[in-house]
Amino acid sequence: MPLPISKTKALLEWKLYLFIVPSVLLIAIFSYYPTISAIYHSFFMWGGGDTKEFIGLKNFTDILGDKVFWTSFITIGILVIANVFRMIPSIFLAVLIHRLKSDRWQYWYRVMVVIPMIVPGLVTLFIWKFFFDPNLGVLNAALDASHLKTLLVHMDQFFGWGVFYEGVPTAWLGEPALIIPALIIWGFPWIGAVGVLIFLAGLQSIGTEVYEAADLDGVTPFQKFLHIELPLIMTQVRLSMVLMIIGTLQGFGLQFLLLGPDGGAGGRGMVPGLWMFNRAFIAGEFGYACALGLFLFVFILGLTWINNKFVKVDK
């Protein structure tokens, strides 16, 4: 830990502080200034141009009566829960890689998991959009070829969903009832490179003596995972979960690209971030969108605080 220096010495060496000025400036301009501007504009009726009118707390009181905004939390809640389950394949793969005896193979599997990261997320989204195409998409083609479509049609007739019909291509992004399943299915098999690497790092910090002791006790592989590996990587799991929840709550790029600014058929894909975008760029209510953003920020901050305070990890 660096030793503290006296004030006089710090003042004499003031030129050294100039080295942090560029970073501070960049953070101030690109992070803090937009945030402060958004807070400022949330108190105005603002159309995005130079004209604005101060309206006090009206934007915030309007949020209370905004049905679309509150309903969007139901959708985002479903997606958050789905994303918790979507973390499982990454954990599973990390465990599998960790248990490989050969270090060389471990390395190559890590490389193979990381390589897809070079494909920009946007490109992946567009590829998935093509997968969902009712006429040319891979998903419908796969369901037809595997006869799963026939099974789905029978299930539809039994449950009365009204979305799967024989001989009619399924519009995954065009049917209200299929919007949320489509948003959950996308990204299959849900293996995120960053998640795998984080969990792998956690697993590799587990000492071999723990495994040796487990072997001596006759613990099965699954029991090892359940009672040794999972508890010891809970810090990483918790970190991933916090980042995932924040990302899911704030995010709307997925929904915007796949469904458009209205949230798709029936508005089923509307999430708070997308509603904020809709108000700003479709309705032209930038001031109101800033207020929504501020509300979302406070909400996420509250959730993070709850998570930090009440979700404890026993080591």
Partner: peptide
Amino acid sequence: PDAARIYNTNINDLFGPE
């Protein structure tokens, strides 16, 4: 904008078998 949103998000009720 808001009327268009009602239109766009419900137009699937005009098309298709159902």
